[in-house]
């Protein structure tokens, strides 16, 4: 009777559960592997930059951005204009590590941010100095999960999937998984509409709705340790079918082969 006690006594349970969770995460990593670790720097919205940062921002901009976007952000053949994109867009691209890119790409992928939080805020200020306005970096307040779920289902699920696992669009574009996004990044993406993503300005979703949405996306990400076990990357029925064939039928046919043999064989 040692086994069931081991299985149910709480303290003993944790290492095993951690192991199971680890295994689940490793297995789930198929689609998530598209996105490396999330940025720790991104969660702090840089609001007011220090006055001395202006020099730093200029220096960083000329070093990393100007070759494609032009010295005054006017854009060039290799990169679009940054005039009027707004601080939210710059912060989104930099804090998700999508910018800078070393070469021209159709759709930059999420990565480890290159710059620190302070540097990002300096760059945001520098790009804002080109003029043109554009969406500000949103402030995200705690939101309501229920309303967030409904907004997500109506506006985000068609591309990012109801599970937030992401999906393919046309011509090689993808809607990325949302599991690494911080609330601010979610709000920025909603307001800015990076890449092919539609824009949701305040007449479509007001600030409170964006807060709700950000809260639900955080919850979605928190529930990656799904209640029902390994989520199989939340890829849906075909991944489940694959498991049914490979794992279940594999085990069952192996058992049948062993049982169906005669003892001497």
């Amino acid at each position: 009777m040692r086994r069931p006690r081991a299985a149910t006594v709480r303290p003993l349970l944790h290492p095993r559960r951690a192991l199971a969770v680890g295994a689940a995460l490793v297995l789930a990593a198929g689609p998530v592997a598209l996105v490396p670790a999330r940025s720790p720097a991104a969660s702090a919205p840089p609001a007011a930059a220090a006055p001395a940062a202006g020099d730093r921002g200029t220096q960083l901009y000329l070093e990393h951005c100007a070759s494609c976007h032009g010295e005054r952000g006017q854009g060039a053949q290799r990169g679009p204009s940054l005039v009027g994109v707004g601080p939210a867009s710059v912060d989104f691209q930099l804090s998700t590590g999508r910018m800078p890119v070393s070469r021209e790409v159709q759709q930059a992928r999420r990565g480890e941010p290159v710059f620190s939080a302070a540097d990002i805020s300096a760059l945001v200020d520098h790009v804002a100095s080109f003029g043109g306005g554009g969406p500000r970096i949103p402030r995200v307040a705690p939101g309501h999960l229920g309303s967030g779920r409904e907004i997500f289902a109506a506006n985000c699920a068609p591309c990012h999937g109801a599970t937030g696992a992401g999906a393919a669009l046309t011509n090689g574009w993808t809607a990325p998984p949302l599991y690494d996004s911080t609330p601010v990044q979610v709000a920025e993406a909603v307001r800015v509409g990076p890449g092919l993503m539609p824009v949701f300005p305040s007449q479509v979703l007001d600030d409170r709705q964006v807060d709700d949405l950000a809260a639900y996306v955080q919850r979605l990400r928190g529930e990656r340790l799904d209640r029902g076990g390994n989520p199989l990357g939340r890829l849906g029925p075909l991944a489940e079918g694959l498991v049914a064939w490979l794992a279940a039928l594999g085990l069952l046919v192996a058992a049948a082969r062993w049982l169906g043999r005669r003892a001497g064989e």
Partner: peptide
Amino acid sequence: AQATSPAQPDWY
């Protein structure tokens, strides 16, 4: 009016 992606049925 809602949709989700990727959308697949069960394997069979």
